[in-house]
Design a protein around this nucleic acid. Sequence first.
DNA 1: ATGCCTCGAGTTCA
DNA 2: CTCGAGGCAT
Length: 780
Amino acid sequence: MPANPAERVAELRRLIDDANYRYHVLDEPQIPDAEYDALMRELEALEAEHPALASEDSPSRRVGAAPSGKFAQVRHAMPMLSLGNAFEDAEVGDFVRRITQKLETDAPVFSAEPKLDGLAVSLRYEDGVFVQGATRGDGATGEDVTANLRTVRAIPLRLRGDGWPAVLEVRGEVYMPLADFEAYNARVREQGGKVLANPRNGAAGSLRQLDPAITAQRPLAFFAYGSGLVEGGELPDTHSESMRMLREWGFPVSSLGEVVSGLDGLIDYYQRIGAQRAGLPFEIDGVVYKLDDAGDREEMGFVSRAPRWALAHKYPAQEQSTVVESIEINVGRTGAVTPWVLMQPVHVGGVTVTRATLHNADQVARLDVRLGDTVIVRRAGDVIPEVVRVITDRRPEGAQPWRMPSHCSVCGSEIVREEGEVVARCSGELVCPSQRVQALFHFASRRAMDIEGLGERLIQDLVDFGIATSVADLYRLDVDDFVEMKRRADERDGTTPETVKAGKVATRWAENLVEAIDRSRDASLARFLFALGIAHVGETTAKSLATWFGDLALVRHTPWPLFKRVPDIGGEVARSLGHFLDQPGNQQVIDDLLARGVRITDGHAPSPKLAEGLDPATLLVDLEIPRITANRAERLVSAFASAAEIATAAEHRFVSAGLPGEAAQSLAAWMGDEANRYLYLRALDAQRALLERLPAADEVQAGPLDGQTVVLTGTLEAMTRDQARERLEALGAKAVGSVSKKTSFVVAGESAGSKLTRAHALGIEVWDEARLLEFLQSHD
DNA sequence: ATGCCTCGAGTTCA
DNA sequence: CTCGAGGCAT
């Protein structure tokens, strides 16, 4: 360390400025945050020790004292212009035509760059030192937010290099990077503070803080996009060159800027940036085109306060406000009640949105959406619209907070919400028409029984007219049933005239449906189990059950504790299966399905791997009897001649078997319940019966991918992802949706995205399509 | 208890 | 796709 404090202070300032420059301008962080903090602390300490060394442009001075009162007004030396807007390509065409006519050139040259959604500011540098920063305001006069801007690390306090004009005004956008915005909100939410509504408001609000210390806490960034007053020096003749210059002097400049020419160049740029939009680390609301050459710009001049040489080409808004017309509920196949809002139609991100889900009561409470409220709707990177927040200022007088109805609006049954659960459920189960519709819809869906043409609307009518209520009913419907149903539906909707002339068409339509239903009669066990819609049994679990048990009759009569022997099935899922199978109505439906011709096409013997854990001690543990641990279960079983005796033994025999008093009491009490005792004895029998049916382990051949977990991503040429998945699963692999360190390998097709990136980050093997095909071929 | 991975369930528009 | 929650390893 230099002995001279002045030298060290200078060195520290240089190191810190460099770090900022690398981080914000070059986007190549070189030193870890902790080290940066250490440098800053050392600098602060030295400056405190040697007040003579203090300086206005020291990086330690980013946070100054809080000003008293309000912000001062600043008159911009050169006005901050507003830009003309275009939403349609045709408007861009007009813009280009005006330029080609006036400049008498075929393909004018533009500088194009993304238009960040933040807050425009002007930064004034005198002799290379940042002296004043102001908001845009009305373009002529803004607010002096110098102290706040100093806290933004991406803004240089002192210019780098040389050759800068004595007075330089730099124009640019202060914004909040998306990742930082989310991280900030996550942290604030944890601490119960007030979250920022969106990155743009976050940036604007942060700059308008009276206390710079608060602004310093906010993750603000900056991009330069132009200049204002320039004195005592000059900038290059083209905008693109000027931007390069600004970058050298230490300003972050978007790397997405390009020089393009003619209308085609502009539209192409607009589309390319639009395609990247969702993946950008910041929000943009459009792109800006500027004539690149200063001479051209001068020739074009201005109309009122907007230049004729620049244009903002906007993307469809991703956020819009609209009014809540009603708050309704949906009842899903499991009875889950989900509130949703019906809104006045509004264009968001290119589509018309009228409804959005509110997920659950907690979400409604968090947003505090009320009838008649004006809300902000967003259609973010994904497709599904969401209500972002309520504009409470525009709330109608007397609007009351929404409350979950106490009874189902469809069947009138009570709506209950279990302790600790987020979702409320309609208790109507089999009698709730909504749950019936959803159950049938699920049964018919592509991944279940795959009945083509049997959509939600149709099923709604089937249920409404009482033609079908259980999934088994579908298999006794004939052409006449569908034609009759259509007639009644038309009558109800007042569309009768159409049917008369469409009589023949309706018959053809009904025949197709009956055919589709017939085709679905042959099903794999996995699809069949999934189709039944048992709570907690999705596609994956249904597949596991099918592989491990192999046979429908076996599954139907298995007591629930035995289901826990299948990997990934625990108490919750096993009990849910048991609950379903215990209901005579459900067993009846399965009987009906089989009686009406549904056939399981791939029945087979249970997996020999089930043998492990098919013993009385494991059963006692799986039964979840309080205080019965694995050790105690072992002791118990070895103390009795037969496991069945445990069902009826007296408490003292459990004590002599080595159980602590409390455990013995707990077990005796449990077995004292007749239903429990019966379950235990039935499970013992089932274990024995199952063991007898298990083939020897060497009778089944191992798949080449047994035990491997794979992830498929991107688009494949020769087959769909689903087909590839089936082939791999047939070889023993388990296909999952996300990459983790447990993933064996990733199959990446064309335009694979984040999953491939993650695979590389975790150092996981990646197969391209050729490698996949080769593997599949060699293991046919 | 805690934290990772998965799975299940629900969702919008053209 | 996103959330909540189940399963399981630590």
